[in-house]
Simulated assay, not measured.
Amino acid sequence: MKSAIHQINSDEDATYNKRRMLSELNNMEFTVGFEKVRRLMKKLNLVTKRPKQHRYSFCDVASVIAPNKLNSN
């Protein structure tokens, strides 16, 4: 089971958390619970990478198409 967890982690670029790992292992016919997956991932030092947050770019130039009526005093 440890090799399967390592394989899933490397295939998915370390983006699978314990819940997704549990469903993958259950699909591979392993009979395992949530806490067991959590303990194994902790024992194997597998940490899930979070995707970067989306950042909106702001520009300092006012729109040419329409005036900004929200910023009026």
Rank of each mutant, 00 (worst) to 15 (best):
A62V: 12
S63K: 15
P51M: 06
H54T: 03
R50E: 09
L25D: 04
Y56F: 07
C59D: 08
D13T: 00
I8W: 02
M21V: 06
V47G: 06
Q7V: 04
I65Q: 14
M41F: 07
N17L: 05
S3E: 11
P51W: 03
P67T: 11
K52S: 02
A14D: 06
K49P: 02
S3Y: 04
K18Q: 09
I5V: 09
R20P: 02
R38G: 11
F58H: 13
V47M: 10
N27L: 11
T15V: 09
S72E: 15
Q53H: 07
A14V: 00
D13N: 11
S57I: 05
T31R: 04
K49T: 05
R39L: 06
S10F: 11
V37P: 02
S63L: 15
K52T: 00
K36Y: 06
L40Y: 00
T15Y: 00
L40A: 12
H6C: 09
V32Q: 09
N71C: 14
V37Y: 03
H54D: 10
N45S: 10
A4D: 08
N17C: 09
V64G: 08
K36A: 11
G33D: 13
M21Y: 04
S63R: 15
N45G: 07
E12W: 13
K18E: 10
F30A: 06
K42P: 01
E12M: 12
F30N: 03
I5P: 05
K36C: 09
A14T: 00
V47K: 13
S10E: 14
N71A: 15
S72Q: 15
R50A: 10
I5T: 04
H54S: 10
I8R: 04
V61T: 10
R50V: 01
I8Q: 07
L46T: 00
A14E: 10
R55T: 05
N73I: 12
T31W: 02
P67G: 10
E12G: 00
N45V: 00
L40Q: 06
N27Q: 11
K69H: 13
N73R: 14
S63Q: 15
L44K: 01
Y16D: 04
G33P: 07
L22V: 02
F58R: 15
H6D: 09
L22P: 02
F34W: 07
D60F: 12
R39M: 06
F58S: 14
S23W: 08
Y16K: 08
K69V: 11
K52D: 04
P67R: 15
L70F: 09
K18A: 05
L70G: 01
P67Q: 14
S23I: 05
S57G: 12
L40F: 01
A4G: 07
R39I: 01
L40G: 05
A4L: 07
N9W: 08
N26Q: 14
S3W: 04
M41K: 03
L25G: 05
D11R: 08
T48Q: 07
G33A: 10
N26K: 14
K36M: 08
